[in-house]
Amino acid sequence: MNNIGGLLIDLDGTLYHGRHMIPDADKLIAALRKAEIPFLFVTNNSSRTAASVAAHLREMGIDANPEEVCTSSLAAARYVAEESPGAAVAIIGEEGLLQACTEAGLTIVTEKPQYVVQGIDRSFTYESLARASRWIREGARFVLTNPDVMLPSDDGITPGAGTLAAAIEAASGVPPVVIGKPESHLVAYATSLLGIKPEEAVMVGDNMRTDISAGAHAGCRTVLVLTGLTTRDNLEDYQRLTGVKPDEICADLAELMVLLGV
């Protein structure tokens, strides 16, 4: 694969499963550094700060720095800040989203927001739902970090940010602006951080519905790795469901390194 301006690399299912590194993930990152190929870790996870994501990777033996992490919270905060600098924002989310919005110069409020910015919030309550839907009905813009309906956890599958957003949308009658994968905002933000055009970037991920779809929607080349959600058995179904096809398919990360020539 030639003329790579930078790689956008998914995390869960691509470089690790939960707390366990996928084979050769550490070697891939080391090889990219040696070859001086720019990259970012691009994740829909809105709960963690960039520093905590990088720390999680390092704990597994994958070399990572906070400035190499691009989360849906960072992209959502940038989206609002560019549209309305210093806007009054109500946060429904966790540390990663709160920090991102604060660092983007937004004003965090608990009444009369211009925006309701929502991510995963494991302390979400009926009162949260009532307040958010009221604000949105009164004219606040509804911005969703990522549409993931379900998330894996140590206790099995749990509701994600998309599940909470569905309740808020039902109560307010207003759909959100979606920032994370499969929409293109997160990928466009990541390419801007690398200083490259989307067509110069390569999106690498294991999920046809999020990673590959987002890359395709943003105009990037895409590489599907069969290390997580998508398999040879379900690939055709996912292609039919999403209406997109990856530019390249690699069985594992060792095969990806061969494809990249690193």
Rank of each mutant, 00 (worst) to 15 (best):
S84I: 08
C101P: 07
S84A: 13
E94T: 09
Q114A: 11
A88V: 03
P113Q: 14
T107G: 13
E103S: 11
A104T: 14
V89Y: 04
I91A: 06
E95D: 06
K112P: 04
T102W: 08
T110R: 02
L97N: 14
I92M: 09
G86P: 03
A90W: 08
E83M: 14
E94H: 01
E83P: 00
I91P: 03
G93P: 00
I108V: 15
T110K: 05
L97D: 08
K112G: 03
E83T: 15
S84C: 09
L106Y: 06
G105H: 10
V89F: 10
V89W: 10
S84K: 07
A88D: 11
V109M: 06
Q114S: 10
V89Q: 13
G96D: 06
S84E: 01
Q114D: 13
E82S: 10
I108Q: 12
V109C: 09
E111A: 15
V109H: 02
S84Q: 15
E83L: 13
A87R: 14
P85A: 01
G86R: 03
I91G: 04
T102Q: 12
T102M: 03
L106S: 06
E103A: 13
V89R: 08
Q114F: 01
T107H: 10
L97Y: 07
T110L: 00
E103T: 09
A100E: 01
T110C: 12
P85Q: 07
G86A: 04
T107A: 13
E95F: 00
G86W: 00
P113A: 13
C101E: 08
I108G: 12
A87G: 15
A90F: 12
E103P: 00
T102D: 02
Q99W: 01
T110S: 14
E95K: 06
C101N: 11
K112E: 15
L98R: 11
L98Q: 10
G105I: 08
G93K: 02
A104H: 05
A88R: 15
G93N: 02
P113K: 07
E82K: 15
Q99Y: 00
L106D: 14
I108S: 04
K112F: 13
I92P: 02
Q99E: 15
E83H: 15
